[in-house]
Every structure is written in C-alpha cells, then in structure tokens.
Design a protein around this nucleic acid. Structure first.
Lengths: 164, 164
DNA sequence: AAAGATTGAGTTATCAATCTTC
DNA sequence: GAAGATTGATAACTCAATCTTT
C-alpha cells in the first residue's frame, strides 16, 4: 500500500494548522518511531517464521545464548527484556513446548526457576540469528552514519527513561 | 528497573565478539527502535487511560477528526494506519460501543461502511489530543535538533519501505 | 510480609475463511 | 471473479489475584 504523500508529514501539517506548534515535532518523531517499529517487526517475523519463532521468543533465546551459563531465572529475563513477568512465563511455556528450552529448579532458592537452552534450542538460535543478521541487521535500509546517529539519539532517550 | 549498564550496547558488544561486525550496528539500531517504541507506547497509554482509550483507538479517532468529512471507509482507515483491516473492524467495534463512532452506509457502494465521529467522539478526541500534546509530544525527552534528525532518518527508512 | 512464578481475564494484533455487493 | 467487511482462531502482552517459598 503506497500512498501519494508522506502520511506523517501530513499529520504534522495538520498539527501546525491547529496551532499545536510546540507539539508537532514531537508528534512526528514519536509517530515515526511507531512506524519504524512496525516495519522492522514485520521484517523480523518474516525471517523468523520458518524457524517457528516469533520475535518475542527469539529475544528470549538470544538472551539465554549470550548469558554465561545458558540459563537464567524467569524474572531476570523479564527485567532484561523490559516486559512483564507473565509475558516471559508465556514465552517460556511455548519455547518449552517446542523443546527449545527447559525449566530447571534454582540450586539454592526453591521459589526461582531457571530457563535453560536445550541442544535444539541452541541450534535454532544460532540458525535464526544468522538469518536475522543476513536478512535484516546487515541491511537495515539506512547508511552506517544514519544507523550510528539513530542509536545515539535513542540512547539518550533510553537514558532519560531510566533504562541504565 | 534500572540496569547498571546499557543493555543494547552490551548486546552490540556480544555481536562484535561473535565476529558479526557487519550486523552489529544494524542490530543495535533496530533494537533501539523497538525499545523506543515500548517507552513511547507506555507513556501514551498512560495518558489515554483516563479517557478509556488505547493508542490504537486514539489513532483512529484523530484520523477521523482530521479527515474532511469526519467519516471514512474502514478500509481507508486501515490503509492510512498501515494495519490489517480486521484490526480496524475491532477498533471501530469498541469505539462504537463507547459511542465515540457510528457506522453509516456508504452513499453509493453498499459494500462499504463509513466510520464517523459522534459528538462525544469529537469531544473526547479533542481532549485526548490536548492531553497527549501536553504529556508526551511537547516534551518527548529529546532536543529539537534530535527530534528533527530522528524524523529525517526514519523518513528515509519509511521511504525505502515504500510507504510513500 | 516480601519475592518468584503462575493462572485467569481482558485487549490488540494478525491470518484464514466467509459473506455480501460490485 | 474481485472488493469491502466481518467472524473465528491464534499469539502476545498486561493486569489482578493466587500459590509457594523465603
């Protein structure tokens, strides 16, 4: 669906017309981020579909792959991924049903459960990551300079939001 | 939940360690966009909650408010908002239940249905927009220069994705 | 009482299939 | 047959409430 005009620039024009000058740049920027997210998410899901993975589950898998012991408490995963704990319960349920992950008891705290990669999980994560690199991350559709600027600006935003 | 380090910079470091140098900047940029989306969405939903609106429904309302006749075919709304038609059916169902919107038949094409704002819908949209401007768009947490740069870079991305 | 995890309810999104009208 | 919209199924997220363990 290609439009004959930039819909966000059009919205910004509307904002200006209503004398919301102070809000127009912020509105345009925020809306642009929403649309960029939508574009990237669609591409990512396309890449991951053959592996029977969603982006949410892919994030859990990569986090486990890069963690020191290949296993993490569910709450820790939620903190790192900045989502609700129940989302992780759900994601791990599905990953466990796919035999990519197993829940194991915490060695010293019986309340805590660890999610750990299985052999199959480690394998699919490697293959899916390779696919994501090739199909999305290596060619986002922006110049190196733009990528660096984008990261830099959004890092300030994340900093201001208290991420780190 | 504040971490002692920047989780995305940490992920980029992992990518470098695995010799995925060509993918690291793209991964960091894409992941940053995802997190920025998450931050903005949470803020927006907080602002809209008192009006009993979600961001998805707010988008439909503002589109109708700014359309010439205050009413649009459902398919047109889906095209402009770049979402699936069924999402609009669902959103309009709820907006209609809230009496913010009414479905009316298309004057010449019986297949098409128009979604139009009610008086209450027009009012809540105005109030919600004012709140969104004050609480989010007027102070995104970035400088004017950053906002402009962000918009400019993401416009190139949207252009490359075929949005306009 | 507090922390970790899960269950159930409610919302939103997509997809496939269906229905009506052109 | 194609276009516009809806219905039913599925996935994911959040929230409130609950259960177990500390």
């Amino acid at each position: 669906m290609t439009l004959a005009f930039d819909p966000i620039a059009e919205a910004r024009r509307q904002w200006e017309e209503h004398d919301w000058h102070a809000s127009a740049p912020g509105m345009a920027a925020v809306t642009s981020v929403f649309r960029a997210h939508q574009i990237f998410l669609a591409r990512a899901e396309d890449v991951l579909a053959p592996f029977e993975l969603t982006f949410a589950r892919f994030e859990v898998l990569t986090l486990l792959l890069f963690s020191t012991h290949g296993a993490l408490p569910l709450g820790k995963i939620a903190d790192r991924l900045q989502v609700h704990r129940t989302s992780i319960t759900n994601a791990v349920d599905r990953l466990e049903a796919q035999a990519f992950v197993v829940r194991t008891p915490h060695p010293t705290d019986a309340r805590t459960r660890l999610a750990g990669l299985t052999k199959a999980g480690r394998e699919v994560t490697r293959r899916a990551t390779t696919a994501m690199n090739a199909a999305l991350f290596e060619d986002v559709g922006l110049s190196s300079r733009d990528l660096a600027t984008l990261f830099s600006i959004l890092r300030r935003l994340r900093r201001a939001a208290g991420d780190f």
